[in-house]
Each structure stands twice: as C-alpha cells, then as structure tokens.
Amino acid sequence: MAERQPLLAIEGLTISLPTADGGRASAVRGVDLSIGEGEIVGLAGESGSGKTLSALAVLGLLPGGAKTGGMIHFAGRELSAADGRAQAELRGKDVAMVFQDPMTALHPMLSVGRQMTEHLVFHRKIGRAEADKIAIDMLERVRIPNPRAAMARFPHQFSGGMRQRIAIASALVTGPKLLIADEPTTALDVTVQAGILRLIEQLRRELKLSVLLITHDLGVMSALADRVYVMYAGRVVERGARAEVLARPRHPYTRGLLDALPHGSPSDHPLTALPGSPPAIGRFPAGCAFHPRCRFAEDICRADIPELRDVQPGRAIACPVDPLSAVPA
C-alpha cells in the first residue's frame, strides 16, 4: 500500500477552533492519513475525537474561525489545508461527501432531479438534458426503483434508506475519485444499514472509488474498511489493517472500545465499560489524552504526548507502554 502514490495523503493536519472566552482550542493535533485508489479507509472515534473535523478540512468546509495547518496531497497535487480556492475545485469534482442525516443533507423543497443536477451543470458546464441522463444513470446504479419518475419527486416522499441512496447518487454524479462518508448509516435501522453498506462496497468495486468512512460504529467499520485509523482527542492512536486492529487491538483505547461492545458469544466477552467519558475539545488531558481512562497508564503517559510509531509493517500505535503486544487475541 505504501509503495504506490496514495490518492489522498494528509500530513501533520492541525485544526484549532475559537472558544467562547476568545481563546483557541486545539481540536486536531497532528494527523497523518492516506487513502489509496479504490481503498476504503475507516476513521473511528467517539464524539469530539476530531474525525469529522479532519474530513471537513480536506474539503475546506470547516466552521468559520477554524485555523488549519499541515499539508494535503490529492492525486499528486499539493494543496495547503488553508487554500480555499483549490479546495472548492476539489469539492466540485474529485471529492464528494455524504452526511449522517439524508433528510437534512437533501434540500426539502427541490426535486431529486433538480438537486442532483444543479452542481453538475455548474461544475461540468453541460446542458440540462445531458445532466439529467447522468443523474438517472446514477439513481439506477444505487438501485432507486423507477429512476426517471424519482427525478420529479421530493425527498420527503422517500424512506430514510432511499433518501440516503439518493444522497449518495447525488454525491457521485460529478464522478469523484474519493467519497467521504460521515456516519452514513448511523440514523438508519440495521436492515436498511445493511443495504447501504452493500451499496458502498458495490460502488467501490464498480467505480474504483476510494472511500473515507467516518464512524463510531466498529461493526460498520469491520464490514467495509480495508484499513482503520482510531482517533482519540484529536490524534490518531492506532492505525493498521482492519483484521489486525479489530481482532487484535494493540492500543488500550481501541481495546476498551471493543470490550464495551456486545460481540462474539456472551460467555466469551462480558460487556466491560470503559471508565469515564471522552474529553471535550479544549479539555484534552496533558500527556497521552487517554491516560485518565487507561488501566495501563504509567508516569510517562502523564508527561509526554506519545508519538504514533510503527510496531509492525503497516501497523502503528501511539502508546509508550504497549501493554497488549503480547496478549493473544
């Protein structure tokens, strides 16, 4: 994976946000992330971990007042995280995003056809008839029944799952190389979620699409992602192949998250809660931000912010203690 030029490479990304008292708070603190062509990369973490902010930074969609640092390379081109114009271009063509709630992502008063083609006409400078054809093809690809008729209907006339399919189709009409999906199934029932996950996998295969999948749900991660990044308090704490990270977590935080989930048979894994709750932006503990919740914490964890270091080929953790290295799965 590292040999080839990645489609997207983020280096040393930092994001700070203004606080209510006029100061600034670090929300993302040095994130490196890469996505290969046709690869699905999962970004996991609890609320406040900085996973959504990192993705928004790629698109230049951060809230006003946010300050960014670091570099973003897309398809060999280099753009600084603060270069708004280059990002607007990226947004229209090469990178598209799908959000958690398709009801708010879609405009309620525009027909499906209108909102699927507006940006297409704008960015590609093509005629309406041609744009309609592209949109209908895409609706068919995401399995909306009777796509031609669907173009004239409005978002509220569709179920939640169908709406998310329309939002995905709408994101893909400009032919992007990278799809950023932020909690794309969190608002949906499990049976509907299953359909959307299968759809994303199908689109990756058919369109050679790269996907950045942002989710707190490690089950969703396990179904789709090739590689996984786990974030905590604005930093990546573990990175590696899906099977490695989820079946043999090596960072105590990843392990804690997995132990809190019901999986496997009840006798193997009693539900074990992770003590405390994730820190809010601006209140990250010193040293390793996870140390107050970590049962393996030592003095060094309170003193220094641990670097993300390689422990195996393609596998890195940010933990100086590394207490799980010898633990069998």
Partner: peptide
C-alpha cells in the same frame, strides 16, 4: 466488530 470484513 470482529475484523473479518463480512458484509451484513
């Protein structure tokens, strides 16, 4: 969340 990559 077993890391096996099984689609539901």
């Amino acid at each position: 969340p077993d890391g096996e990559g099984r689609l539901p």
